[in-house]
Write a protein that binds this DNA or RNA. Structure first.
Lengths: 191, 191
DNA sequence: TGGTCGATAGACCGAACGGTCTATCTACAA
DNA sequence: TTGTAGATAGACCGTTCGGTCTATCGACCA
């Protein structure tokens, strides 16, 4: 039986950091993280080597989760690549409406991590390319003439949606983006 | 004759803060700002009341500058609203290519200023609405059936362009956005 | 039973943070 | 010439920062 073991300090730290680095930004103090996770100071340095290691691991973790969320969203939309791609924007619309939505975590991280050598940058860059490739694969299945370029455009719409969702709540950027996405995908193929 | 007086401490501080808050983020230390501006510590608190007052004033200043840059870009593009709107994306393309481009200052500020009561938020919000209204006015002149909604979409493309420009250099988001913008504007009117 | 290892609490470190203060200097006006 | 206002340098304040360290605790295993 897969009994759920009580999460250890490492898991508690990751969970607390995931939450706090998003809500409070990358500037959260170590003390705040430790208190939120109920973890001894030493454990942080044992497991992650320092704050940078922790936030990098958080980025890695959430990137995997979000990547899976893209895949799950498309899987739930069925087989038609057109429907699958448009479903992404419906999903974004839901995310934006969540009360504690604060914009794209990865964009915020890249803007906040001043040091270009911070290992977090590599994680966010890889994440973006993975999403790009997911989109491109669908576009290819759709028979789009320029799948890579169209994926660039869809990614631009996604980033725009998340940015506007954070800065102009009340407008409905996901719906506006979805309409533009339809034009990228071209006329629906009438079988 | 309009002899250019040597800039006083206030101007030097604003200029240094404009530069450093963009390059290093809102987390720059007061000491770094003072050193860069060659200004006494006391002067900062005399003129701006504190760091928050300074960065808010910087946002106000750059918002006015950027607003003027939008207007100038459109003015230089002539009278046709379609050309004027598309010129914005050409201009964004130039901005993104600048070697020290680091993304949208206002989005970065909004993500970095955790405290929702920080006066900077009001400045960035106002700025966005001003740009929106500039776009909407052109769309109205163009005879667009839904100028406010189309302005939402253009603003989304702008934010997406700046985000992608910061996170995926090498791709050419401004050109990709421009093409989508053309579709928002509709078929060019053949006089 | 004793040993080991992971975790705990928390003192402690030097550095940097934002902000206040005194004292001095300089330019300009009365 | 003297007074005044604005700017200067920089000491100083308490707090917080990320990070290190010691000491203790408790669970599991030999």
């Amino acid at each position: 039986m897969t009994t759920r073991t009580a999460p250890g300090p490492r898991e508690r730290l990751l969970e607390a950091a995931k939450e706090l680095t998003y809500r409070q930004g990358m500037g959260v103090g170590v003390d705040a993280l430790l208190k939120a996770a109920n973890v001894a100071r030493r454990s942080l340095y044992e497991h992650f080597g320092g704050k940078d290691g922790l936030v990098t691991e958080v980025l890695r973790l959430t990137a995997a989760e979000d990547e899976a969320a893209y895949e799950q969203t498309m899987r739930a939309a069925g087989d038609d690549p057109r429907r699958r791609l448009l479903a992404v924007f419906d999903w974004l619309g839901e995310i934006i409406e969540e009360p504690d939505f604060r914009g794209c975590r990865y964009l915020a991280a890249e803007l906040a991590l001043t040091d270009p050598e911070h290992p977090g940058h590599a994680v966010t860059r890889r994440y973006r390319e993975r999403v790009h490739d997911l989109l491109e694969a669908e576009l290819r299945r759709l028979g789009h003439p320029r799948p890579a370029y169209a994926a660039d455009q869809l990614l631009l719409l996604i980033d725009g949606t998340l940015a506007v969702g954070a800065t102009r709540p009340g407008t409905h950027p996901a719906a506006a983006a979805r309409q533009l996405a339809e034009q990228i995908l071209g006329e629906p193929r009438r079988s």
